[in-house]
């Protein structure tokens, strides 16, 4: 059993890292969170029932650790950053701008929506697994992912912004136009 526990833990680490990034929005804080959660899991491994959902158990530990850490040091590490690897391989300057804009928008989502979106899209978890890992109803998990997608669509397409006033600064209207053009090229269906 110990061998199985440790191999399951190692196999899950990439997913835990993504979940930690969804929660913290900060690479260094995410690494610390994963390390702390792993230490907690190792200490509590006798409480895990073999044959039950290890990923959900581990995700809950990481989530609880995040919440308790947040309570202790509220917002002291609220420095958002984005994975730099993606920008290195982005084909064009326009691609990098779109990715940066998406990354900033993702970081603006409520944490529970971002977490659920990452779990479904990046980790390929089912809504049932998201619900088990985050301690919510399946319908709530669906709702969070649905609202995250629609919110990102609204932000990225500028749908939630009031129409510029006639006396609004030209620069803002120009920025909106540039953004729509970028997204229009990157996302032909928009």
């Amino acid at each position: 059993m110990p061998n199985e526990f440790h191999s399951q833990l190692v196999a899950l680490l990439p997913r835990l890292r993504v979940q930690a990034l969804a929660l913290t929005r900060n690479r260094a804080a995410a690494e610390d969170l994963v390390q702390d959660a792993v230490a907690n899991a190792l200490a509590a491994q006798d409480s895990f029932t073999p044959g039950t959902n290890f990923a959900a158990w581990m995700h809950r530990i990481l989530r609880n650790r995040f919440i308790s850490t947040l309570r202790k040091q509220r917002d002291t590490t609220d420095i958002e950053d984005l994975p730099q690897g993606a920008f290195a391989v982005a084909a064009t300057h326009e691609d990098r701008l779109v990715l940066k804009e998406l990354g900033r928008a993702v970081n603006k989502l409520p944490v529970d929506q971002r977490e659920a979106l990452f779990m479904v899209v990046l980790q390929g978890l089912s809504y049932e697994e998201v619900a088990a890992a985050t301690g919510c109803a399946v319908g709530t998990a669906k709702s969070r992912v649905f609202r995250a997608r629609r919110q990102l669509q609204a932000w990225l397409m500028g749908e939630d912004r009031p129409a510029p006033r006639s006396d609004a600064p030209r620069a803002e209207a120009s920025r909106d136009k540039d953004r729509s053009a970028r997204l229009g090229e990157a996302f032909p269906g928009a």
Partner: peptide, 27 residues
């Protein structure tokens, strides 16, 4: 169509995170 675009771009943005090696101290 937006959801498909979002799916692809999120992977483009965050897949590198999952491919990083395990930090030595954690291993």
């Amino acid at each position: 169509a937006f959801d498909v675009w979002l799916h692809d771009r999120l992977h483009q943005l965050y897949d590198s995170v999952t491919k990083e090696p395990i930090p030595p101290e954690l291993a």
